[in-house]
Design a protein around this nucleic acid. Structure first.
Lengths: 104, 104
DNA sequence: CTAATATTTCAATATACATTGAAATACTGG
DNA sequence: CCAGTATTTCAATGTATATTGAAATATTAG
């Protein structure tokens, strides 16, 4: 999960993810659309791959990238958790014992 | 928005956000719970504040932090956008013009 | 096999970020 | 005002990350 959070923190990578919403894309397509050098793009795709946010498949000369939506779902679940009341790990509940945050 | 993505990319900051789900907390409480030095904590809180993910209010000697859920909602909306079909910016649709990603 | 195209790896560099101790600032109680 | 507590700012440092050009690898077409 940590990998996914870091992956989406970069604007270039978010742009890549957006383009991938349009369907499968080759690395070359993405480099062109994302406006980033081929080397840098390759790096970003690697990060996205490690985060399991994209899949890649070789098709002839090309590497074809596509979205893997399952990790997005997990992200959503976690962020919703911050808002609502679905918890998963040690969270100190707001008990009545007010130590010092009473008032001014 | 960019600020929010970067803010949640750090595990310590996500931990802080979790603790804040339990209600208002002073900076001291958070430092203790998050297991990070006071200086580092102050830095993280600043990042969260700039991202508008938390609010802060002085109450006597203390600075009291709390969640600001509105930005979380925006985050959710964007991530849902990546999954579904709600788009907001230039996205190349998967048109029928297959240039070279035809097949192997 | 060779030439051509697509993509990744390597090596170097520059920038951003997290962490720390010490000093500065803000507030409370007496 | 003074001592004490809470928090932030400052300055320094180490680590992580983004970017780049050149070289290496993979695949196709002939």
């Amino acid at each position: 999960m940590q990998e996914a959070y870091k992956a989406i923190a970069d604007p270039t990578r978010r742009r890549i993810l957006k383009y991938l919403r349009g369907g499968e894309r080759t690395a070359g397509d993405l480099a062109e659309q994302a406006g980033v050098g081929r080397t840098a793009l390759s790096h970003h795709l690697m990060v996205l791959k490690l985060a399991d946010l994209v899949r890649v498949e070789r098709r002839g000369q090309y590497q074809v990238y596509s979205l893997n939506t399952t990790v997005f779902q997990d992200l959503l679940t976690e962020i919703i958790g911050w808002l609502g009341g679905i918890d998963d790990e040690s969270i100190k509940e707001p008990d009545a014992t007010e130590e010092h945050v009473t008032d001014a």
